[in-house]
């Protein structure tokens, strides 16, 4: 039964290019490429269908919706899974001073923790400065990351209101929301980050093969 299942498309492409052994040919497993994913969608649907067969080993127990809700802290880039609650820039300023400034600096200028502020317009320069304001493409990711991983010494300790507030303050420090902002799920998802369109799929292998000095 297992042998009738289609093999992973990527593996087939990979071995095909290996057989041909053509130098400079793009190996099929450069999976980051967006267009390749679109092309592979039909094959993936077939794979997923193959994986729908009933449980073969009967291991584990069902996870209840309540259990999933208690553990699932993933926020997607569109913010559709952002929780209820809200927080203001002013609340965030107070929280930031107490919980974040020790590592990230009073104004997010960085310290033992990463710099959070500045650098807009610097990415194509000789001294690019990657911060929340200059580099992060999606505002809801701020909520996701702060909630799951910050502060470094006490992750998952902030309430949703507090995470909204700190997110608002960090965005405010970057000039992306005004001083009187109160962020909730809809407002955070509506913040358009300056570098939203700054990311590209992986084009590798990208180094011309035969231009090499021998």
């Amino acid at each position: 039964m297992a042998s009738s299942r289609p093999r992973a498309r990527s593996a087939e492409v990979d071995s095909a290019s290996a057989r041909e052994g053509a130098p400079g040919r793009r190996p099929g497993f450069a999976v980051g490429h967006g267009s390749r994913w679109v092309l592979a969608a039909a094959a993936l649907a077939a794979l997923a269908a193959a994986a729908q067969a009933g449980p073969r080993y009967g291991l584990g127990r069902p996870a209840t919706q309540a259990e999933i809700a208690a553990w699932d802290i993933d926020i997607d880039r569109d913010g559709r899974k952002l929780p209820p609650g809200s927080g203001s820039v002013a609340q965030g300023r107070t929280l930031f001073a107490a919980q974040c400034a020790g590592c990230h600096g009073a104004k997010g200028e960085g310290g033992s923790g990463e710099r959070l502020v500045g650098g807009q317009g610097s990415l194509a320069s000789g001294k690019p400065l990657k911060t929340v304001g200059s580099f992060w493409p999606y505002a809801p990711t701020l909520f996701d990351y702060i909630r799951r991983a910050m502060p470094l010494n006490a992750p998952q300790s902030l309430t949703s209101e507090e995470v909204y507030a700190v997110s608002a303050y960090v965005l405010n420090l970057n000039g992306l929301v005004p001083d009187d902002t109160v962020l909730d799920a809809a407002a955070l998802a509506a913040v358009r980050m300056p570098n939203r369109d700054g990311f590209r799929p992986d084009p590798r292998p990208d180094v011309p093969l035969r231009a090499r000095p021998e």
Binding site: G32, P128, K130, F135, Y145, F199, P203
Partner: peptide, 30 residues
């Protein structure tokens, strides 16, 4: 299991590769 990547901090602002033109390569796994 999802239809879209999470676009987590680690795969947007962290493990992405900044190019000279200011764009960054994302999902550079290999």
């Amino acid at each position: 299991v999802t239809a879209e990547p999470a676009h987590s901090r680690e795969e947007t602002s962290k493990y992405t590769d900044l190019m000279p033109d200011g764009t960054a390569r994302q999902f550079t796994f290999m």
